[in-house]
């Protein structure tokens, strides 16, 4: 028998409203800090403030696809539909955030590099990651049988995750126009002024809460959909 409801003891539906409130409140605080509290950059001026959107979106894209990997492994291991629901939810949200990450990067590139798009390793590898997970969703969409769809998607979810470190490290491996990592640096502490770093950390927290809220809603929807499918068949 296949279990299609939320596992017993999962507090997902109960905490969702609180998660939504926390996500909205922290998002407002992070936006206010980014716009009014963080100092102006000496070189880029106010344009740099898009960093507080761009970097959290990149973090969420990475996080979402790593969650797809973990949920895919868990599905192959246990065959519990809950993990397939987590994988599809995270993949959809990851595609959304990767798309926004590319758009935010493009908006930042125009005033700083003079072009909307350039054939630069970080941009190209990110675009490839985006296409890869669109392919993941396409693969899911073309499969009709639940178990086969979940298994096929899980295998591809594991194979595709290799692009995440490639995207992150591409600026180190190739001559890149994109700036080098400023927070997670191999040597030394973050190369950011303290108020800028604090604002960035608050933004990362706020966006992570938004991801958690989206995940809880989408996982519940997917489990309900799986339940309907099994009732029909």
């Amino acid at each position: 028998m296949i279990e299609t409801t939320i596992p017993r003891g999962t507090p997902l539906p109960r905490i969702r409203p609180w998660l939504g409130i926390a996500a909205a409140a922290s998002f407002v605080v992070a936006s206010a800090m980014a716009l009014f509290w963080a100092p102006t950059d000496a070189v880029q001026g106010d344009v740099y403030r898009i960093l507080y959107v761009h970097v959290p979106l990149a973090w969420l894209a990475y996080l979402a696809f790593v969650v797809v990997l973990l949920a895919s492994v868990a599905w192959l291991w246990t065959k519990r539909p809950f993990f397939d629901a987590v994988a599809v939810a995270s993949a959809e949200i990851g595609v959304l955030f990767t798309g926004l990450f590319l758009v935010a990067g493009s908006i930042w590139a125009k005033p700083t590099w003079g072009v909307w798009w350039t054939w630069e390793p970080r941009l190209v590898t990110t675009a490839i990651m985006f296409v890869m997970y669109v392919g993941y969703l396409l693969l899911r969409g073309l499969s009709t049988d639940f178990s086969r769809r979940a298994t096929r998607a899980a295998v591809f979810g594991i194979v595709a995750v290799i692009d995440v470190p490639i995207v992150h490290l591409s600026v180190l491996w190739a001559n890149s126009l994109h700036q080098l990592p400023t927070v997670l640096r191999i040597a030394g502490s973050p190369a950011l002024d303290t108020p800028m770093l604090v604002t960035l950390m608050v933004s990362l927290g706020a966006y992570t809460l938004v991801y958690a809220y989206f995940m809880s809603a989408r996982v519940s929807l997917e489990l309900a959909r799986q339940g309907r499918l099994w009732t029909r068949t």
Partner: peptide, 22 residues
């Protein structure tokens, strides 16, 4: 992964080529 799926001829390059980039 794309075995016995409709639109397989289109799906395989979409899945394979991005992973083959490196």
């Amino acid at each position: 992964l794309a075995l016995r799926l409709r639109a397989r001829a289109a799906l395989v390059p979409i899945l394979a080529l991005p992973v083959l980039v490196p």
